[in-house]
């Protein structure tokens, strides 16, 4: 590995990074928040949600998969990109059945928090109201597919971190679903409540039983600060 640093700009601000680093990682290190959902530190970038889309030298790229390059200009926080990002987040809401007001993940949910940060109060796209299944067969864990955004974190974590294969996608297109490694039920798999895969879902699709609403309102992850605040060095810049 060469020790060379790479210099580029994000919205006009000069950022430095190491060769091979992704735009998202370099931005994080520089205290610049690029919205993301599927990405999770420690897993291979999945590149599926597309919320992290930025414009690199005029071309759209996913910041979580695109390596930095010398002298490039990256646009992140422009009106145009924010519009497309909101549209994508909107799509996730109408694609599933997300009832934040009585979801136990509320306040700790990355999708909800991102919607708030982007200023989405209600989606503009028509709700699809899909028929989804719920699997509560396991004594400690349940899956509610109504809320799954197909980010792939559980699939990857089970394989790459837990050394198992509890979760995998089945179906194609709009029929794509998260499935478990058994003919039907989660309880027939070798999943364990301590698996990383069980503790990584950005939304309320994989949850542990008997833990709902444990954290009082006001103390939840995103009650006081919008999502991304931890990354931003200058929190005043958040509008």
């Amino acid at each position: 590995m060469s020790e060379k640093t790479i210099t580029f700009t994000i919205d006009g601000v000069e950022v430095k990074g190491a060769p091979g680093q992704t735009i998202l990682d370099a931005a994080d290190a520089a205290g610049i928040y690029i919205p993301r959902l599927c990405h999770f530190k420690g897993l291979n970038p999945h590149g599926s949600c597309r919320v992290c889309t930025v414009i690199v030298n005029g071309r759209p790229q996913a910041a979580c998969t695109q390596p930095i390059a010398e002298g490039t200009t990256v646009e992140n926080d422009t009106e145009d990109i924010k519009k497309h990002r909101s549209n994508i987040v909107d799509m996730m809401f109408v694609e599933g059945n997300h009832f934040c007001m009585f979801c136990e993940k509320s306040g700790n949910c990355e999708l909800q928090a991102l919607a708030y940060r982007l200023g989405i109060c209600a989606p503009k796209y028509p709700f699809q109201f899909p028929d989804c299944t719920l699997d509560a067969s396991h004594p400690d864990i349940f899956i509610d597919r109504n809320r799954c955004i197909l980010c792939g974190r559980c699939v990857q974590a089970s394989k790459d971190l837990d050394g198992k294969c509890v979760f995998e996608f089945v179906g194609r297109g709009a029929e794509k679903k998260i499935a478990v490694n058994a003919e039907a039920k989660l309880s027939d798999t070798n999943v364990d409540v301590t698996d990383r895969a069980v503790n990584i879902c950005p939304v309320g699709a994989i949850l542990k039983k008997r833990e709902g609403f444990k954290i009082p309102i006001g103390e939840r992850m995103y009650d006081a600060q919008p999502i991304g605040s931890d990354i931003e060095s200058d929190t005043k810049s958040i509008k």
Partner: peptide, 8 residues
């Protein structure tokens, strides 16, 4: 169905 914009 891999990415959101195309799938939805």
């Amino acid at each position: 169905g891999y990415c959101t914009p195309c799938r939805v």
